[in-house]
């Protein structure tokens, strides 16, 4: 990956309540707009963030989000890392399947969020917690869009 230099300004937000979800959406929207993401890309990012933050809240029992603007390489981007210390996800394959749900959504949380961003990384250990990292790049220049998930 290209994040060689130290990350400039990582913002950390708590995810512990409904209101935190709303705040997460606002902050992600604002940061994405500042970085020059177009309206559709902003909306996709905010939606992905909302899905993942809700996962952190509902399945991870709360945690936090790290927002990192990526401005080092030739492209601008945004990285979001969702961390919790909850029970973890036992079957990642299954969790990534469309329609699989343990919460109250439509079972599109993880798999759906993956489709909305350029990069998606998932790490979960039973009993230790879950970390989901997503990144998106401002398009316009040839975008490094990962193969459709």
């Amino acid at each position: 990956m290209m994040q060689v230099s130290p990350d400039t300004a990582t913002t950390s937000l708590p995810i512990g309540s409904d209101a935190d979800l709303a705040w997460v959406r606002q902050r992600v929207r604002q940061t994405a707009a500042e970085l020059g993401f177009g309206l559709v890309q902003q909306t996709k990012l905010v939606t992905a963030a909302s899905e993942l933050a809700r996962n952190t809240l509902v399945h991870g029992g709360g945690g936090h989000l790290e927002i990192t603007p990526l401005t080092t390489g030739p492209n601008r981007g945004l990285r979001l890392t969702f961390l919790d210390t909850g029970p973890g996800i036992r079957d990642i394959e299954q969790a990534m399947t469309d329609g699989f749900t343990t919460g109250g959504g439509l079972g599109l949380g993880l798999s759906g969020a993956k489709r909305l961003v350029n990069e998606f990384d998932f790490d979960s250990r039973p009993g230790e917690g879950t970390t989901v990292t997503i990144a998106a790049w401002v398009s316009g220049l040839p975008s490094p869009r990962a193969g459709a998930g």
């Binding site: 309206l39 559709v40 902003q42 909306t43 996709k44 939606t47 469309d98 439509l106 599109l108 798999s111 759906g112 489709r115 909305l116």
Partner: peptide, 13 residues
């Protein structure tokens, strides 16, 4: 809104 509709379509919703 279009951006919302595009996102939902992408999401498979």
């Amino acid at each position: 809104r279009p951006a919302v509709a595009i996102t939902l379509a992408e999401l498979g919703l």
